[in-house]
Amino acid sequence: MEQQVATFTVKKGLAQMLKGGVIMDVVTPEHARIAEDAGAVAVMALERVPADIRAYGGVARMSDPELILKIMDAVTIPVMAKCRIGHFVEAQILEAIGVDYIDESEVLTPADEQHHINKHLFKVPFVCGARNLGEALRRIGEGAAMIRTKGEAGTGDVVEAVRHARAVLGEIRRLQNMPEEEVMAFAKEIGAPYELVMETRSLGRLPVVNFAAGGIATPADAALMMQLGMDGVFVGSGIFKSGNPAKRAAAIVKAVTHYNDPYILAEVSRNLGEPMVGRQISSIPEAELIAGRGW
């Protein structure tokens, strides 16, 4: 009766428990408590939300462990934190302080322009962003136990999250409909491990939980991503950059649970105050876009 820890089953299992829920970016312990009280299933502990990272410029790094620890003390729900793409020492530090999930995130400035972290080496599970099926399966191949769309963080514009969700789900539908002899060429075309492509084909979905992220700002945005087939949503700047964070947070939580009920969606969307201002993605110069980070 030996206990086994850090198996892939328990890593992806935590993400399964988060399904149908909202994971919120928070920058203080007070924010974290507001998020928990609003019904968040987890929080992402950060020094700056993506909208401020964009505005601030410079190199965006892992947050101060002191801040993350204070947020871990403030709530009973799981706490996630971000490290830079490829920065496995930031990941080691986050594992050492005991965060529940690491987001190897394009929102921070990448530390390696060719390689992501070998996530199999860690006991803590990882979530990674993806724009399409190939990218998602490469991350899972490296050990990611949860996937999210990249979207375009810090914009409040949902268009990229929709594009990435449709890409992943559309490619899975295509994969399921092709004869088996075409699968190897498909795996080559999308640059994904063949075994994971075969597993995805037989499951009809990614082998791990798949959340929406990047630009979700309203209850309707969140429900849109759920109706498209995502398992849950991350909301970054959309809550604490809005006029009434507590109310908006609670409304987005309700919208994710009742994503198929337009009457409840109408009710929870009323009187939420100002949404985050937002930036239309088509107005942002190519060089400032972050979804292209990661390979």
């Binding site: 206990q3 086994q4 850090a6 935590l14 871990m72 799981p78 005991g98 529940d100 803590v124």
Partner: peptide, 16 residues
């Protein structure tokens, strides 16, 4: 007792 075994890194599988 919630989270009785600690944080996620302590999550485990066992035969009962």
């Amino acid at each position: 007792e919630r989270n009785a075994f600690g944080r996620q890194v302590a999550s485990f599988e066992v035969d009962l």
